[in-house]
Design a protein around this nucleic acid. Structure first.
Length: 319
RNA sequence: GCUGGGAUGGCGGAGUGGACAAUCGCACGAGACUGUAAAUCUCGCGGCCGAAAGGCCUACCUAGGUUCGAAUCCUGGUCCCAGCA
C-alpha cells in the first residue's frame, strides 16, 4: 500500500509550514486540500505560501501545474480560474492523477489542508461523486422551499428522504443535491471514482480556542497589510463577479460592501475575522469525528519534533 | 443652566400596564453535512434543578410610589445624547 501523510486541522495553525518542513526530510510533494486555493489569482486571502517570483509550472496537458516552494512541489493551487465554479468531484479526479505521478517518482505525498470534505474524498469513498451536477434541474428547483424540496425528494427516493437528519431536511442546497442524485437519468454512464486504499498517517494541529482566535485576528491583519484590497481589485477588474463561487470565501465576500462604498474598511476586517473564527469552529467539529487523527497542540514548543518522530516511525514501517 | 429625547441580556435593537426571562439580528457555544464545503443547514444561548415535561430564583440605570399585576404609569436621583444658552 502506498503511504500518504495527511496534515489537517483548523485554520491558522501552521499546517502548510509544518508540511513544508516535513517535505524536506521525507522527499515529499505537497497537495493542498483547500477548496479556495484552487482558484488562480486568489493568493493572499486563501493563504498560498508563495514566495516572490515563484513560477507556476505545467509539464503535461494531462496534469495540473504546480509551484515550487523551497524546492518542494506544491500541487492543488490554481486549478481553475476564479470565474469558474468547482467541486469536490473535480478535485478528486485531478488529485488522484497527481498522486499516481508522485508515487511513480518514489516520493511521499503530503495532503495538507483544512477542507475536510476534500480530504475525505481522497482518503475515503464518496459514493455519489459520479453523479454530475444537473444545471437545469437546479434551476427549476431554485425557488422551492425546503418543505417542497423535501416532499419532492420523498417521491423520488423515500428511503433517502427518511434517512435525512433534521438539519439536512431543512437544507435546500443539500436537498437539491439529493434530488439530483435520486433523479439521475442514466446511472450507467456515471463514472464512479475508484476507492484507493492508502497506508495513512493523519496529523491534526490544534490550539486552545482563545489563542487560536488571536492568531486568526493577527493573520487577517497581516493579510490586509500584504495587499488584500489590491488582490480583490485585480480580481474584479479581470472580470470576477461577487456572485462567483470563488468570491463566496472568507476574506473575499466581506469586501462587497466596501467596494460599493457602503461599508468601512474596519467593518470588512471585523466581518472577516468573525467568519474565520466561525470557520475554525466548524473545522474542529468536522475533524474531531475522525478518530484516526493524532492531534498535536501547537502551543507546545516541541510539537514539530513530536510530529517528526511519529512520522519517522510510520515511514520506516514496511507496509 | 434651560428645553427635548433616552438608559432593556456580551453588542445592536423591539416591546410602552397582564399571554415577558423579554420578538429579531449579531457575537458566542454545540452540532449536521457523500458533487457549491471558506458553502449550506440545525439546535442552544440570565442563573439553578431536571433526561424531559416543567419548576424555582434574580432581572429591563437607581431609590421609592400607584396597581390584583410594572420593562411599560408617577416622583426623586444618577448618567448619556441633541438643540438653545
Amino acid at each position: 500500500m502506498q503511504k500518504l501523510l495527511v496534515i489537517c486541522g483548523p485554520t491558522s495553525t501552521g499546517k502548510t509550514k509544518l508540511a513544508l518542513h516535513l517535505a524536506k526530510k521525507y522527499n515529499s510533494e505537497l497537495i493542498s486540500a483547500d477548496s479556495r486555493q484552487v482558484y488562480k489569482g486568489m493568493n493572499i486571502g486563501t493563504g498560498k505560501e508563495l514566495p516572490a517570483n515563484s513560477k507556476f509550472k505545467i509539464q503535461s496537458s494531462k496534469l495540473p501545474g504546480y509551484y515550487e516552494i523551497n524546492e518542494v512541489r506544491v500541487w492543488g493551487y490554481d486549478l481553475v480560474p476564479p470565474t469558474r465554479s468547482f467541486s469536490v468531484a473535480q478535485y478528486k479526479k485531478i488529485i488522484d492523477k497527481v498522486l499516481l505521478t508522485i508515487f511513480n517518482r518514489k516520493k511521499l505525498p503530503i495532503l495538507v489542508g483544512g477542507t475536510g470534505l476534500y480530504i475525505k474524498a481522497i482518503i475515503d469513498d464518496i459514493s455519489t461523486l459520479g453523479v454530475p451536477r444537473n444545471t437545469n434541474l437546479r434551476k427549476s428547483l431554485l425557488n422551492k422551499t425546503s418543505d417542497e424540496l423535501y416532499a419532492l425528494l420523498s417521491q423520488f427516493d423515500p428511503i433517502k428522504s427518511a434517512s435525512l437528519n433534521v438539519s439536512d431536511k431543512k437544507n435546500p442546497r443539500r436537498l437539491v443535491r439529493a434530488i439530483e442524485v435520486a433523479s439521475r437519468i442514466n446511472k450507467l454512464s456515471e463514472i464512479k471514482p475508484k476507492k484507493i486504499n492508502y497506508n495513512l498517517l493523519l496529523i491534526g494541529l490544534i490550539l486552545f480556542r482563545q489563542d487560536l482566535y488571536s492568531k486568526i485576528a493577527k493573520r487577517v491583519d497581516r493579510r490586509i497589510d500584504q495587499g488584500m484590497e489590491t488582490e480583490i481589485q485585480k480580481l474584479i477588474s479581470s472580470g470576477v463577479r461577487w456572485g462567483n463561487q470563488s468570491m463566496s470565501g472568507m476574506g473575499y465576500k466581506q469586501w462587497e460592501g466596501y467596494f460599493s462604498k457602503k461599508e468601512s474598511l474596519k467593518k470588512v476586517i471585523d466581518k472577516w475575522k468573525v467568519a474565520e473564527r466561525s470557520y475554525s469552529r466548524k473545522q474542529i467539529a468536522w475533524f474531531k469525528k475522525d478518530k484516526r487523527i493524532t492531534w498535536f497542540d501547537i502551543a507546545n514548543k516541541g510539537y514539530p519534533q513530536n510530529v517528526e518522530s511519529l512520522v519517522r516511525k510510520w515511514y520506516k514501517e514496511t507496509s
